[in-house]
Amino acid sequence: MTKTVLIAEDEPHIVELLTFLLEREGYAVTAAADGEAALTVLANTTPDLAVLDVMMPKQSGFDVLREARNDPRHKDLPIIILTARGQTRDRETAIEMGADAFIAKPFSNQDVLATLRRLGA
């Protein structure tokens, strides 16, 4: 069965590139341009994995992460946090809040794909 990945990222080119990469690997991609849109997706569907950018308009990736962990349906959803910010602090925050992996921008495509596979998606 095709696995679905939620990509929440406000930079359209990054979304486009990740979508291209993931679709080539056989994933289905649902994109959200900000945190609020990502929460709407999570309210209505159960993706197999989520990639959340930290700095997004309306709700941050951390906000989405927190909401997801409070939702019994997404308690075990593998979540990757993507960020371009002060890396050490964001990484610790992400792990403390229950993220499964952390990828810093600029990332390599191979890192993203390897992380996805490691998380079993």
Binding site: E11, H13, I14, L17, L18, F20, L21, M55, A84, R85, K105, P106, F107, S108, N109, Q110
Partner: peptide, 18 residues
């Protein structure tokens, strides 16, 4: 500016790799 640059570099790198 730093956030913007890292995002731009991420996009360029990812594209170049593809």
């Amino acid at each position: 500016a730093v956030h913007q640059m890292l995002t731009n570099i991420a996009a360029v790198r990812s594209t170049a790799e593809i």
